[in-house]
Amino acid sequence: MDCNQREELADERLAQLHQRRTALPFTDFDFYRLIRSREYLPAETFVELAEGSLAQAADIKRGGIPVVLSGIVPEPMNVLESISELGGRIVADDFACCGRRLYPRGTSDDPFRRMAERIVYAPPDPTRGNSIQERLDHLLGLVRSNEAKGVIFYEVKFCEPELFDLPNLRKGLQEAHIPSLVVEVDINDPLSHQVRTRLEAFLEIL
């Protein structure tokens, strides 16, 4: 198995984890610790870890208000614990460091072209220049296919690629009767109580 094949297999397992997330016996916090290990673990080690986790999938129904998260990165990670404690459940995400990294398999025999195909055909990302409409369609798809009740835009301060798209994304969601919330955080700071209160209020209206 060559390097490309190893990476593609690891990403396939990553996609399976995302798809089966509600069947896994993990909290949202533990689930994100697991999938984000793809950022630093060697592909073959991650495949082993992912397959062991997927084997634990069971026909269970987890409670909580289903929401989709969008943004760059879920940091500080205790935001995930807060959402769970406040009664929410993350059913899908559009994070640049998570859901937008679900690269599909390439088709070319040329390894460099194959890598390029995988990046180009990945889910829409403002840092890669996708149109706002493509992003909106993707978000609406995530919400509908996972029966989410709302979207939380969890934004890193000063992040222009995200901030420029926000008003049109929220408008599109509103037109589809999907409530959304924008939370702006500084990832170097701990999660503030103000953010927690806003998350609580949003989950209450859902």
């Binding site: 403002p126 220049g129 706002i132 690629p161 798209d165 049109n168």
Partner: peptide
């Protein structure tokens, strides 16, 4: 990002 907003 700016011109994508204009295009939209």
């Amino acid at each position: 990002h700016w011109y994508r907003v204009l295009a939209h």
